[in-house]
C-alpha cells in the first residue's frame, strides 16, 4: 500500500514537473524546450475549437531552423523588393548588420510588430478566445491583440492600411481554421531578417488542430509588388496548449527602454 502511494506521488510529481505554468504561478515566461518536447498529445482534437493558451517554444521566437526560414532565404524578390530589402538593416539573417547599424523599427524605435510579423517572429505565448462573431488572439509579446471576424463579412476592397490589417476567418474543415488578411501597413517588416512588404500584401494563415494539445500554424505571404510568388513564413509550426490557469508574462518593448538600450549599449558598439 505504502509503495503504491509512493509510486502515485512520484508519478504525479514527475507529471507536474513536465507541465508548465501549473500551481497558480504568476508571470509565466513561456514554455521551455523540454516541456515543449515532452508535452503529450492529450487526446483527440476537439471539433472546431481553438480557445486556449498556446506556445510554440523557442521555434516561435526566432523563426529559425524551420523550413520556412530556408524558404525566406530564397525569397523571390521583384526589383522593387530587392531595393526595399537592401535598405533594411536587420539584426538577424543573411543580411544581418551590426547593433550600431541596425534599423529594425521594432527593436530600435519601439514600433509595433504589426501583422504578420507578430506570428513570424517573437511568437510567444498567445491566448485564443472565440466569441460568436470573432476569434481574438491575445499576444504576450507587446501585450497586443488581433480581431479575426467570423461573422460573414468580406475583406475590405480598398482598405486604409493598419498595423494589424483586416482579418476574416472560417473553418475549412472541422480541424482547420483559415484566416485571410489584407490592408497591412508597409512600415512593418515580415520578420526579424528584414524582409519587407508593401500595402498590397495578403496573408493566409492555417491553424490545424492536430490533437488536444497541438495546433499547427502555416503562414503564406503573397505580395506581388515585392515578391514574384507567394512563399511560406511558417510551415506547420507546432504550438502546444498551456494549462488554462497560466498567467502570461508582460513583455512589452517600451520606447523608453529601447532608447535606454540604444544609448547605453548599441551606440557604444560603433567601430
Amino acid at each position: 500500500m505504502r509503495a503504491r502511494v509512493a509510486i502515485t506521488a512520484a508519478a504525479l510529481a514527475c507529471l507536474a514537473s513536465w507541465l508548465p505554468g501549473t500551481a497558480q504561478e504568476w508571470s509565466f515566461p513561456g514554455i521551455s524546450n523540454e516541456a515543449f518536447n515532452k508535452m503529450p498529445p492529450g487526446g483527440p482534437a476537439p471539433v472546431r475549437q481553438l480557445t486556449g493558451l498556446w506556445d510554440a517554444g523557442a521555434a516561435g521566437i526566432g523563426g529559425q531552423g524551420q523550413a520556412a526560414a530556408r524558404d525566406a532565404a530564397r525569397a523571390p524578390f521583384t526589383p522593387l523588393g530587392q531595393q526595399m530589402f537592401a535598405r533594411n538593416k536587420p539584426g538577424n539573417g543573411a543580411n544581418a548588420a551590426s547593433v550600431a547599424e541596425n534599423n529594425d523599427p521594432l527593436n530600435t524605435l519601439g514600433d509595433p510588430s504589426g501583422f504578420p510579423r507578430i506570428v513570424n517572429y517573437e511568437l510567444r505565448t498567445i491566448q485564443i478566445v472565440e466569441t460568436p462573431g470573432q476569434v481574438l488572439m491575445l499576444f504576450s509579446f507587446n501585450k497586443t491583440w488581433r480581431s479575426i471576424w467570423t461573422d460573414g463579412r468580406q475583406l475590405p476592397r480598398e482598405p486604409d492600411p493598419r498595423w494589424f490589417g483586416y482579418s476574416i476567418g472560417r473553418w475549412e474543415d472541422d480541424y482547420t481554421f483559415v484566416i485571410e488578411t489584407n490592408g497591412l501597413d508597409d512600415r512593418t517588416w515580415l520578420d526579424n531578417n528584414g524582409h519587407p512588404h508593401s500595402t498590397a500584401l495578403k496573408v493566409t494563415e492555417r491553424y490545424r488542430r492536430v490533437n488536444l494539445n497541438t495546433l499547427e500554424l502555416t503562414v503564406i505571404v503573397d505580395d506581388p509588388l515585392v515578391y514574384t510568388k507567394p512563399w511560406l513564413t511558417r510551415d506547420k509550426l507546432p504550438l502546444k496548449r498551456l494549462p488554462d490557469n497560466t498567467d502570461v508574462i508582460e513583455q512589452i518593448y517600451a520606447a523608453s527602454e529601447a532608447q535606454a538600450y540604444q544609448d547605453t549599449i548599441a551606440s557604444q558598439t560603433k567601430p
Binding site: 514537473s17 523540454e34 521566437i61 526566432g62 539584426g91 538577424n92 547593433v99 558598439t269
Partner: peptide
C-alpha cells in the same frame, strides 16, 4: 535527468558582427 536538460539559451538579436 531534469537538471541535465537545462533550458537552452535563446538566440539574441545580433551576434558576431558586434561582439
Amino acid at each position: 535527468a531534469l537538471l541535465l536538460s537545462a533550458p537552452v539559451r535563446v538566440v539574441a538579436h545580433h551576434g558576431a558582427a558586434t561582439f
